[in-house]
Design a protein around this nucleic acid. Sequence first.
DNA 1: GCAAACTTGAA
DNA 2: TCAAGTTTG
Length: 490
Amino acid sequence: MNKNRNDRSTSSGSAPTILWLRKDLRLGDHHALKAAADRGVPVVALYIREPGEDLGPLGPAQSWWLHHSLARFDEDLQRLGNRLILRSGEAGKVIETLIAETGADTVYWNRRYDPAGSAADTRIKAALEKAGVAVQSFAGQLLHEPMRMKTKSGTPFRVYAPFWRAFEAQGEPDLPVDAPSTLPAPAHLPKSESLDNWALLPTQPDWASEFSAIWTPGEAGARDRLERFVEERLKDYRAGRETPARDGSSGLSPHLAMGEISPATVWHATNGLSSRIKSDEIVAFRREIVWREYAYHLLVHHPDLPRVNINRRFDRLDWQGDEDDFRRWCRGETGFPIVDAGMRQLWRHGAMHNRVRMIAASFLVKDLLIDWRRGEAWFRHTLVDADPANNGVNWQWVAGCGADAAPFFRVFNPILQGEKFDPKGIYVRRFVPEVAKLPDRYIHRPFEAPASVLAEACITLGKTYPKPQVDHAKARDRALSAYRSVKDAA
DNA sequence: GCAAACTTGAA
DNA sequence: TCAAGTTTG
């Protein structure tokens, strides 16, 4: 710990390290933070509100999350004897300014992998090094570096299964590193902007009112969520994650998206449990963690994937659907209860059950024939777990224009999917109370219920609950012919 | 160059 | 049963 200090003492004394934090607001398993602590000089912990990311600013749901995450992280830093410094502006300029203010001679950060972010980092690193500042970047947002994995022929993977096998062949991911016990601050802390002035919380305060009942942003909340998941839900993961009413998923995605917990921490929390929990369940969960790795692998090799069809043949697809169609989907007024339940859960909770995401997304793309990019944008706006890689990759998967060669005729039937995965309508009734009194038999198809049943359930279709936006069978045929024409044109 | 394989389906 | 077409080893 003292070695570095002695090395530097002749030139720069105890010039501080700037620790630039991004979507890695945690103390545990944070390689840049650990390395900064180990230097034994004061650390300036910096978070920059940058003007534009690739896809524009964070959506309002994730901005709500960021507000609380920054506040928690500042509290955590205070326990280590430090504070979080907030600044706005173009990152390179902000760091230069802060170097001038503090006399820092070193900048550390954890790498990011979104195309705009990593390109910016490369530029900033070059500029700082030219100015004589030492810059070091660290891994930690992913289990393995996404550019490292290659097929036997040296190309990037396009298909998940072989990617998974190659991932497994790399052996266990590195163990997480511990949080440091102190992180000394400089004698004079640089000025910080005020978090409240950043106005990250929604302007309609009632919008996010339910978020805080469900989510606890911050590292402690993430670790608590992980612990409870491993204790309670992992043993029945495969069935639980397919059952919207039970929601057996881990709920870790927003924490991972903000870097409040590292994937290595999550991975290794599922080690050493084999006596209590079947290995099939653990593998199933790990495969989901590795899907995130795979999404970043694709994003690195297809930097425009959030906007551009990976399979360019789909550029010619003749999308339909008007503003009103789109608005009804956003609001959960499609007339298909499972879709509406999902879209309303999204609005109320900032998240939607995985199975229902597929159903709702398929409905937008196939039944309404609306461009997947509009759905992607809405999800980015409303999801607390919006992730530049996952969101684009999964929308492209649903739309059929992604890296995999899924059959184009796979169209989810919202009625059958509802009956299969929410047979008792528990999930639907929770989010679509106006159909709650329907018997199970009609809960996913109110438009087929006899008049007497509707009357009994106090439903007037078109008034108390919407008529179905499309006839699914016809919509399916329309989608198939649109997709077929793209195929034939090739 | 060939065979096997491919997250999540519908009728 | 149907019905694609590419990726990977």
